[in-house]
Computed example of a mutant assay.
Amino acid sequence: MPQQFTPDNFYTICDRLAEMDADLAHILQMHGYPPMWSRPNTFESLVHIILEQQVSLASALSALNKLRERVQEVTPARILLLTDAELKECYFSRQKSSYTRYLAEAIISGQIDLAVFEHMEDDEIRRHLTALKGIGNWTTDVYLMFALQRADHFPVGDLAIVNAIKALKSLPKETPKEELVLIAQQWSPYRTVASMMLWHYYLSKPKGK
């Protein structure tokens, strides 16, 4: 079973990472511990992550809340009852409407089972999820990190993470993602928690004019 982080070991892992990397120690000194962001392992959580693709967190949450208002409980069956027009009224783009429907159909058909994922290896979960239209590595990374609390993921496709690590380590803007992946390798097997420290740094740091 892949290593997980929990409320019991989260701060200890942060401290261990700070001992490994002076820049991560700086985050703790300046901003304190990051929140232990987590979400339930549900269809709704995956829909939420799909909504977060390439938009602001606030926009995604607004769409999710609008969906909740319409269907009360966000389930695969209820999603499949909605028309394109109804999903559009919930601020779903045409693409995200289709991605959400594909996910709903995959769950109803038994192609994927979120409860079974809790006992699967990370690579196997990734293979199942990325086989679905509209779910790539970033969506899978965030699901593994937030819904399953898997401890060793670095979402290099996340713009906030990329900007945070470049700012924290004074790297040139043109630094390739491959180099960032190599830097993150030193934080293994706790790259998820290091990523949460980076998100915390990004959200806490005053934005430039």
Rank of each mutant, 00 (worst) to 15 (best):
Y91T: 08
V74D: 12
K96H: 13
T83G: 03
W138Y: 01
E73Q: 15
Y143C: 02
R101Q: 12
D123K: 12
T75L: 10
S97V: 04
F117H: 07
V116C: 01
L87S: 11
I107H: 00
E86T: 10
D122E: 15
I125W: 09
Q72L: 10
R126S: 13
G136S: 03
A104H: 07
L144M: 13
I107K: 05
Y99M: 05
A77E: 15
A147V: 01
E118R: 04
E121Y: 13
A115T: 09
L132E: 07
A77V: 11
K88A: 13
W138A: 08
F117S: 07
A106V: 02
L80R: 02
S93F: 02
C90Q: 09
R150T: 05
D122Y: 00
L148M: 14
Y143F: 03
C90A: 15
E118N: 00
E118H: 09
N137M: 05
R78W: 07
V74Q: 09
T100H: 05
G110N: 04
Q149R: 15
T139F: 00
E118G: 08
L81R: 05
L114G: 07
L81G: 11
F117E: 00
T130R: 10
T139L: 11
D122K: 07
S97Q: 10
R127P: 01
L103Y: 13
R127Q: 14
H128L: 08
A115L: 02
T83W: 00
V142L: 11
S97P: 03
W138C: 03
T83D: 03
Q111N: 14
S97F: 06
M120F: 14
